[in-house]
Write a protein that binds this DNA or RNA. Structure first.
Length: 259
DNA sequence: ATGACGGTGTGGCACCGA
């Protein structure tokens, strides 16, 4: 089984690239963030024509998430139950394969703007609500993958210039503490199960030649539950789509499982 | 590095992302 996550920064703009990437990278499921499309504008037709099932939860202009799968998924949830959220940031579903069920949660964490702002407070509340929900999901679905754009760089080694970014959004102690609390429910960062090249990022600013200079952050993650940890055989970042004409500012992350 | 770039909306720019 192969899973991927990619913040495409507008599915309308990136649909051709996404379809090309999926054709070259035959994953079983991909979690897509920042579709920026209301559900009535979601390109199900084009995706279906390419063989993809889609569960999506979107809105105009901002946010929006989708799970694209080769097989149909069940138990689809949108957003966090009991957490009243106007922003479309979560879609979840259950994949059933020959090796059993795997629960997939696709999450687009709030950006948070800057510490001390209302948006930062919302990010913290959102992460707390997510943790409570994931705890419950883990009890009913021990084989669980939480993947998406977390908008948090877990450690300094996930930041191209930790001194410049110290205390800045994505790198604050408060965000990292919330992320650790989520992980302590019984999840592991698939990327760190393996030796990785130093200076591995998933996002590079569009400005200031950041990609060419490899100045980025690792903020897109695939977390797997303890029950799946032993099955993970690889986790990589594919920088190729970031080199395309009109790229997303994020690169896809792929995890492979012996399932 | 108070900037930069890119997407969206209905714009002549502002807002947001990260």
């Amino acid at each position: 089984m192969k899973l991927a996550t990619w913040n495409v920064n507008s599915l309308s703009v990136r649909l051709p690239q996404l379809l090309d990437w999926l054709a070259a990278n035959p994953v079983d499921a991909i979690a897509v963030q920042e579709t920026k499309l209301p559900d009535d504008k979601f390109p199900c037709g084009e995706l279906e024509a390419a063989g993809w099932h889609a569960a999506y939860h979107g809105q105009r202009t901002y946010n929006g998430v989708a799970l694209l799968t080769q097989q149909p998924i069940a138990e689809v949830f949108k957003n966090i139950p009991g957490f009243d959220d106007e922003q479309a940031r979560i879609v979840a579903g259950t994949l059933t394969g020959a090796a059993g069920k795997v629960r997939l949660i696709n999450a687009y964490f709030p950006n948070g703007q800057a510490p001390g702002t209302d948006k930062f407070a919302y990010k913290m509340r959102w992460m707390e609500a997510l943790r409570d929900w994931v705890r419950a999901e883990l009890s009913s679905h021990p084989r669980l993958v939480l993947m998406g754009d977390f908008n948090v760089a877990p450690e300094d080694r996930d930041v191209y210039d930790p001194v410049l970014w110290e205390g800045q959004i994505h790198c604050t102690d408060e965000e990292r503490t919330h992320l650790r609390a989520l992980i302590e429910l019984g999840l592991v960062d698939a990327f760190r199960l393996f030796d990785q090249p130093p200076r591995s990022w998933t996002w590079w600013d569009y400005r200031n030649l950041a990609f060419r200079r490899n100045q980025g952050l690792r903020i897109d993650h695939i977390l797997v539950s303890s029950a799946l940890k032993g099955a993970v055989t690889a986790c990589t970042i594919d920088k190729a789509p970031r080199k395309a004409e009109r790229p997303s500012d994020h690169a896809p992350v792929i995890a492979e499982f012996a399932l």
